[in-house]
Simulated assay, not measured.
Amino acid sequence: MNYKNLLLGAAAGFAAGYAAKQALEQNCGPSPEKVLASVKESVKKDGKIYGSWIVMKPENYQKNDLDYQVFKGGITRYTDGLLEQFDFAADASTGTIIDLTQK
């Protein structure tokens, strides 16, 4: 077997794999970690974040007769000497906060 053909085949396989990886990443929404970071940025404007969590698997969620795939989670914030707890639901495909409720 000719080494040129072997190297050419390996390069073509690598290029195809890389292109497939890029296409899959563009079609997927943000990771749960990125969604949590975005929610924390929004909530920490009014106080310091004390703790946070997120469910890593998207769940079905309905609001105003619309169905969503969401990441659910929670944040604890320290404001003016008081701890405040929030639950949130963020769209799994965009990371947009759909619901934020204080406990």
Rank of each mutant, 00 (worst) to 15 (best):
N2A: 08
N2Y: 05
N2Q: 08
K4C: 09
N5P: 04
N5C: 09
N5G: 09
L6T: 11
L6R: 13
L7S: 03
L7V: 10
L7R: 06
L8C: 10
G9E: 14
G9D: 11
G9Y: 13
A10R: 04
A11Q: 12
A12Q: 05
A12R: 01
G13W: 02
A15C: 01
A15S: 02
K21V: 08
A23I: 10
A23K: 13
A23S: 14
L24G: 08
E25M: 14
Q26L: 11
Q26I: 06
Q26Y: 11
C28E: 15
G29R: 00
P30R: 04
P30S: 10
P30A: 00
S31Y: 00
S31L: 10
S31N: 08
P32K: 01
A37W: 03
S38L: 08
V39E: 09
K40M: 08
K40Q: 05
E41Y: 12
V43K: 03
V43Q: 04
K44T: 03
K45G: 01
K45H: 09
D46N: 11
D46P: 02
D46E: 08
K48L: 13
K48F: 11
G51Q: 12
G51I: 02
S52N: 12
I54T: 00
I54E: 00
K57Q: 08
P58D: 03
E59L: 04
N60H: 14
N60A: 12
Y61E: 00
Q62W: 14
Q62A: 04
Q62R: 14
N64V: 04
D67M: 08
Q69E: 14
Q69N: 14
V70I: 13
V70P: 11
F71E: 00
K72V: 12
G73N: 08
G73I: 06
G74A: 09
I75R: 01
T79L: 07
D80P: 09
D80T: 02
L82T: 13
L82F: 02
L83M: 13
L83A: 14
Q85D: 08
Q85C: 09
F86S: 02
F86G: 02
F86Y: 10
A89Q: 07
A89H: 02
D91C: 06
A92T: 03
T94N: 05
G95M: 03
T96K: 15
T96H: 13
I97K: 11
I97S: 01
I97H: 02
I98E: 07
D99L: 15
D99G: 11
L100P: 00
T101M: 11
Q102K: 06
Q102Y: 11
